Simulated assay, not measured.
Amino acid sequence: MIKENLEMVEANIQSACKRAGRDRSEVTLIAVSKTKPVSDIREAMACGIKVFGENKVQEIRDKTAEITEPLSWHMIGHLQANKVKYLPGVACMIHSVDNVKLADEIEKQAAKHDIVMDVLVEVNMAHEDTKFGISPDEAADFVKEISVNKHINIRGLMTIAPYTENPESNRVYFKGLRELKDKINAMNISGVHMDTLSMGMTGDYEVAIEEGATFVRVGTGIFGERNYSK
């Protein structure tokens, strides 16, 4: 099932790139493996997938302890500052930076390991109370504030659009995130040149690609529905 699902997702990505006049190489598929067993991840790896996303620090630690092959692991879920210490050397990028305390802790832990951590600023484009993220109006000031950290590389922005039956309804949020990235880049903040937009999930990644996504985060569309009762 995973092989067939991946073939369909790949075909959809290629079609969306073609419609948008983009090169397929501009879009990276992140296979979101949260709650899924290592056997499913290995099945995806056998199909050539090398980039995986996890929502919980403990899960990413457990899975990277078992899977030692060279993969790119992305921390895409809400992150508490006290868990950051487990991520250097494990996650290649953190997608969910949305407060100064968290950014400062990433700086501290990255400095300890003498690395620069790639991060994305999470923006709550739809102003949903149930979601984390900086308000779009505050994003530029927030980027400026955390840009002083020398061990953080602000690569771009991330958003989680509303769940919807109609992917077109999320186009406005994806377009808005791209415009926000361009606006912040135009500010020429020292040390900040953002090239990354993490947006679009199983239900709407094609629209996100049409609006400029460079990372799409697909879980259910690859691995099937999740069982949260385990």
Rank of each mutant, 00 (worst) to 15 (best):
I2W: 00
E4P: 08
N5P: 04
A11M: 12
I13G: 01
I13W: 00
S15G: 05
K18H: 07
R19S: 07
R22K: 14
D23L: 13
S25W: 04
E26K: 11
I30R: 01
I41P: 00
R42E: 15
E43L: 12
A44Q: 03
A46Y: 06
I49S: 01
F52M: 05
E54S: 10
N55H: 11
I60C: 04
T68F: 09
L71R: 04
L71Y: 07
I76R: 01
H78G: 09
H78N: 15
L79S: 04
N82M: 14
K83I: 07
V84W: 08
G89I: 06
G89V: 04
I94D: 01
H95R: 02
S96M: 13
N99F: 14
K101W: 06
L102C: 13
E105M: 14
Q109Y: 04
D114E: 15
D114G: 11
D118N: 15
V119D: 02
L120S: 12
E122C: 03
V123Q: 09
V123R: 03
V123S: 09
A126N: 12
K131A: 15
S135I: 08
P136T: 10
P136F: 13
E138T: 10
A140D: 09
A140K: 08
A140G: 08
K144Q: 14
K150H: 12
G156W: 02
L157Q: 11
M158T: 08
M158W: 03
M158L: 13
P162D: 07
T164F: 10
T164P: 00
E168Y: 01
R171Y: 07
V172L: 11
V172E: 12
Y173R: 10
Y173N: 04
K175C: 05
E179V: 08
N185A: 14
A186V: 08
I189H: 08
S190K: 15
S190F: 12
S190W: 09
S190L: 08
V192R: 10
M194E: 03
T196M: 12
M199K: 02
G203H: 11
Y205P: 03
A208Q: 03
A208S: 07
A213L: 02
A213K: 00
G224D: 12
E225T: 13
